[in-house]
């Protein structure tokens, strides 16, 4: 009975603080980025405004990384984004990941929207990075290196 109460309190607590009890993402902070320590979101930003955020979505219908990488590329291309590059890799923890860079005109500049997909069972983890193309280039390599250290818990 006491255990049931404890569990109930824990569940309620988690529910009250929302995503604080959700999955946590870990990744080496790429050169030039700083991490937002406050709040529940996994977010980073550079001095010139290149932004990074991780989130997760449901892996439904359940499919592998090749399927979702293909679906994402097709969808974004249909929307008018230009696919610039694609790079698949394995993290240091052995997690398969694919990074796709999309270009789009935004305001007076070209912007990059970079989507990195990781599949973890019934969820898809997305690491999204966006910034003006010319600024983004300076961070492309540190980002790719940092993504190798990505893990969830």
């Amino acid at each position: 009975m006491v255990n049931s109460k404890k569990i109930l309190v824990a569940v309620l607590g988690c529910w009250l603080v929302g995503s604080a009890c959700g999955p946590t993402f870990k990744m080496t902070t790429p050169d030039g980025f700083v991490k937002y320590e406050e709040g529940s979101d996994f977010k980073m930003i550079t001095a010139d405004g290149v932004r990074l955020k991780a989130r997760q979505v449901e892996n439904y219908p359940r499919a592998d990384i090749a399927f979702w990488k293909d679906a994402l590329a097709r969808h974004m291309t249909e929307r008018g984004y230009a696919k610039k590059s694609e790079h698949c890799f394995k993290t240091q923890k052995g997690l398969d990941g694919c990074t796709l860079d999309f270009l789009l005109p935004y305001g007076a500049d070209d912007w990059i929207l970079q989507e990195t997909i990781f599949i973890e069972g019934d969820r898809i983890v997305l690491v999204e990075v966006a910034g003006p193309f010319q600024l983004f280039q300076a961070y492309a390599k540190p980002l790719q290196e940092a993504l190798l250290s990505f893990k969830t818990s």
Partner: peptide, 25 residues
């Protein structure tokens, strides 16, 4: 590169509809 040519296309995969620069920002 023509501007303002991003169009809304509804994907049967719900999460793909959430991948967007405007939404991200």
């Amino acid at each position: 590169r023509r501007r303002d040519r991003i169009v809304y296309v509804n994907s049967p995969f719900q999460w793909l509809n959430s991948v967007d620069l405007d939404r991200f920002l």
